[in-house]
Design a protein around this nucleic acid. Sequence first.
DNA 1: AACCAAATCAACAAAAATCAACAATTCAGA
DNA 2: TCTGAATTGTTGATTTTTGTTGATTTGGTT
Lengths: 251, 251
Amino acid sequence: MSKYTDQILYAVEMRGTVTVLDLANTLGVSDQTIRRVSQPLVDSGDIKKVHGALVSSRTASDPPFMARMKLNRDAKVAIAKKATEIIKDGDSLAIDAGSTSGFVALALRARKDLNVVTNSAFVASTLAGIAGNRVTMAGNQLRDFDGAAFDRNAFEVIERSKVDYVVLSASIVNPHRGFLVHEQCEVDIANAMFNSADRSIMAVDHSKFNPEDKSPALCQPPLRPDDIVITDRQPPVQFAAFLSGLDLKIA
Amino acid sequence: MSKYTDQILYAVEMRGTVTVLDLANTLGVSDQTIRRVSQPLVDSGDIKKVHGALVSSRTASDPPFMARMKLNRDAKVAIAKKATEIIKDGDSLAIDAGSTSGFVALALRARKDLNVVTNSAFVASTLAGIAGNRVTMAGNQLRDFDGAAFDRNAFEVIERSKVDYVVLSASIVNPHRGFLVHEQCEVDIANAMFNSADRSIMAVDHSKFNPEDKSPALCQPPLRPDDIVITDRQPPVQFAAFLSGLDLKIA
DNA sequence: AACCAAATCAACAAAAATCAACAATTCAGA
DNA sequence: TCTGAATTGTTGATTTTTGTTGATTTGGTT
């Protein structure tokens, strides 16, 4: 039993399977430590081990929300880690329902005493597990494919909140139109969160920076000066003007 | 017993695990003091100690959510599987926030087009991922250790629902008093769900059938004739009278 | 079969946590 | 004010854990 045991068990149960390197990254320790600490868990049959990863010894047929989170996983993990360097214990924050935000929520399990309001059931259940956190789920009716709520209750709850940070995500970044998503309801929630927050953190991986992309999309609220943009690679030069004045962090 | 004992106990119970240095920091004393003061607590078994941290050793009646998910896992998996034989695609159901219910939710990922209302963020995010499901999260304010909601919104949402089945769980089964849980708010939610449902499914593993257990507890709503009880072993003979008239299924 | 990259393992050095002993501090009661 | 018990911080020795390095194994590919 080590101080990492609980977190390893949680990650394995939650995701069905986690690579050793992934765990090492999120817990901020070396891969060797993960191997050492997980050895007793494997011996006692709590979890199983395959080459490269730890897997839940439960019936191996339930990769929940995380399955969809495979895309650009490394980039998102890095971005999420960066976000935890900004957010401190005890901070209050709103988190949207994007997949990158899901990784931020997982990484934020390393923080404590957080005040969280989110419209994503995944984010809510991820962070509610940490004793000391106060988590508020905004909304009742969940969208089927990602468990996010966009009903009236969601807006009411968000609008009566006041938070230090809002963590937002985007599907596309366009040098002229800004951060874009596909659904109006997502923009509306983002706006409500944005207005409740002192400062915004926009988390987008490099694949979203596509100057050519002309697909129809809707604009997220324009960021304020000194709002934070976290990404995993230096964005193309076309975005220089658009990003000037923002606090760009490369994970 | 020192002036810090309460604070240490509180911190450990709240957070599940706290590093010694962390505690020293927040209490404004040296690490050595924390070790000295926590030593008697460790000796008396109130908390446990690992290298670098103190961890909660809460007894089986009230462990953190994820720990409970490990307890009697095989039994719960079997029970959950049985539940999926009763519940068909397209059914509507309410699910409470017990740990056995968490397994039922995982097993129900094999069903589709379900209408689900639950006050557990874990259950909600588990089932929201399935295309075709309509999932409603009842409640906004989540309890920290298991992500369950018991606020007014939870009751409002449940009370305006109408479902085929309610999946309930219990902490103890007593031959005279019935199915018991520890918190009044859990009973209240169970009652609300019970009243919204045509038929109840009570999911309890064999370890809960303890005729001796006298620990204080509150009664779940009394089941109606032909309501279903799923468990993993034939209950002791003392329960025969209590279970008569119910539809007992052994997984 | 041979090859490569990634993962694992073993072993040692570095870092962190623990423990024991002692000095400094607090504070109640004479 | 003084005394002595109890508590706390500090120091250095000891133990445990962790990171790193390099050799070895594994899984997959040509």
